[in-house]
Write a protein that binds this DNA or RNA. Sequence first.
DNA 1: GACCTGCTGCGGGATG
Length: 750
Amino acid sequence: MWRLTTSWRLLRCDRLEQQSHAFHLLDERIQRFIWEAGWTDLRDAQERAIPAIVSGTNDVIIAAATAEGKTEAAFYPALTHALAQLELPLIMYIGPLKALINDQFQRLALLCERLDIPVHPWHGDIGGTIKTRFLKRPEGVLLITPESLEATLCNRGSSVGLIFQRASFFIIDELHAFIGTERGMQLRSQLHRIEAVVGRQVPRIGLSATLGDMNAAGHYLRPLTKTPVQLIVSEGTGRELKVLIKGYEEPLVKQIAEDESEEPVSEIGPGLIAEHMYDVLRGSNNLVFPNSRKNVELYTHRLSRMCEERGVPNEFWPHHGSLSKEIRTEAEAALKSGEVPATGVCTNTLELGIDIGSVKCVVQVGCPPSVASLRQRLGRSGRRKGESAILRGYLVEDEIGPSSPVHTQLRQRTFQTTAMVSLLADKWFEPPSANGKHFSTFIQQLLSFIAQNGGATASQCYYLFCSAGAPFAGIAPKEFTDLLRHLGNKKLVIQDSAGLLLHGSTGEKIVNHYSFYAAFATDEEYRIIAGQKVLGSIPISMMLVPGQFILFAGRTWRIEAVDDDARAIHVTHAGGGVPPPFDSGTGKVHSAVRQRMRLLYDGNAPVDFLDTTANKHISQGRAAYARMELSDRCWTEHGSELIIWTWLGDDVNEALATFFRYGTLQAQADGPCVSILKGALSTNSVLDILNRLKETGPPSIDDLLVDAKALRREKWDWALPDHLLRASYASLNLDLPAAIDWLRCHEFST
DNA sequence: GACCTGCTGCGGGATG
């Protein structure tokens, strides 16, 4: 028996040795570990990553689908490099989730024990003993979150040099989840600060799902470098994708319920959808994404009740951010176990990282938030060889009546979803936006750096954070001094007689509380107040301007004033104004999606992955589009409204609406268009204004947003001077150049 | 207009 096992091992070893060049480069003990694990070959990404990483000098991005062994591709050569050093170095792994760190710890512990390399997990749930052990001998592998890293930099300033002296690699997991975000800026700044302390560059390894623009990802990982980041992109095996989307129609009855301030009568769509899901999903593992926590509850409830009524064990598990850890763990365990079938009904909590095994179907209820997110979700399905990924979609459109709004007539939901699936099939998806100014995160990093150093001069800070190649390189000297002055006014920093920046009284309080370490804000709500009465509160994700109309508690309200500091919106009841009919549950829509929608409207063939009802909605949408002559016209008139059809993304339409408001019109971005309330103006005078705006150059952001309120989005936006706040908001939400371009290319005449 | 992520240091008391 022993001999048999040995020869079997030797066989495998032979194959690895003959076919793999990279295998030889690994430490012998790691090689042996791989044979024993029963691997017969290395994956493509691993084969290419090992030689790139093992020398310990290069920055590398490994982009591959889930379950392609990215972690091993990074750690095996990094550990090999570590074993070859006289003194054991420190490999730093930074991950976005605690659950991911726990997973990786499990995966590494076995190997590292053999290699006699300590592995230290470090996040909020890890106890003091483990942390102290690491601090005594900071070597081996450290698995940490950006927040815990911030705490270390901030609170252990005097020993930061000692702790990170032997850092040999930064391994950043789920890189795509960091790019373009506050946390991403924080992380980049932290790596920069550590390198500044140890006085050398530490090779950075990014692990990522495939990104649209890999060069941009390289630039994110290491800006302005002479030796470019090595990109290792593994396409994986081209998987087949099966798609079926079913359409439903919601009858008009609910209009009768008008003016009852409560919810309209129960809707038919969700009931039918739940029944169909029950039939097709039972007996296998699946994930259902219904876009909101409320819908997760609704569908899980209906599906579980159906199991109960039919006397079968429950197979449907809810999973979202407001649920307790216990309930979430239960759902994850049910999905992972593989013993009985389980379907997770979830928000994007199950989109990232956590290992739940492969599922048969991914179900999307309503529009997907973006193509990128749809793609990420589909990555969970059909991961075994020979299996195809399956996407099922459910869409409800309202029955068309005599007074149906334009958006209903155009069947926008169906067109948007179809456009997104068609872009997905073309392998296109939204690139992460990298133009944000991120002044907010800069404030955090300044305060943290002051804590780390026990004070810093302004020029030291500017050089460290804002010079070429630094994390906040876009910030101009003038902006920096304006910011510092304002931080002084807010008592966040003070300058001592020698010119040293220190924490002010408020800064002290903020930095000394643990809530300081996260770079992102948690949702804040604004109260809606009519006279003395508080109507309720809503989370703000859109700038507000007095005079604007909003829909709340089933009625239309006119905004009279917005008080950012008191987080209050004062409104009066409005009789006539038409509120923007937002399609709930979707994120920002990219211009490419709107352009693809337009192609669909202009076409005439049925769509093969839509069922009969959904295809009927496509025909109806095309008929409405033709009736309004939208193929040739860029504006239409509907009662008191003038609609400008741009078929561009939300950032562009938002910029256009802002520009129109600057030109004294009452305008709002509204899906694929911008709608203008004519008020006392005639159609011709509105068109005149548009034509005039076309001639004027674009005004400054400050002029454009002079009346705009509720611009605060990021955590420390409250501490920004007005002009920097406007610049920051605009950088994240408005595409002014594209708006001006569009305007210049269009003519407004009757 | 949706959703998600993360969090110190210290002291006191129980337990082995």
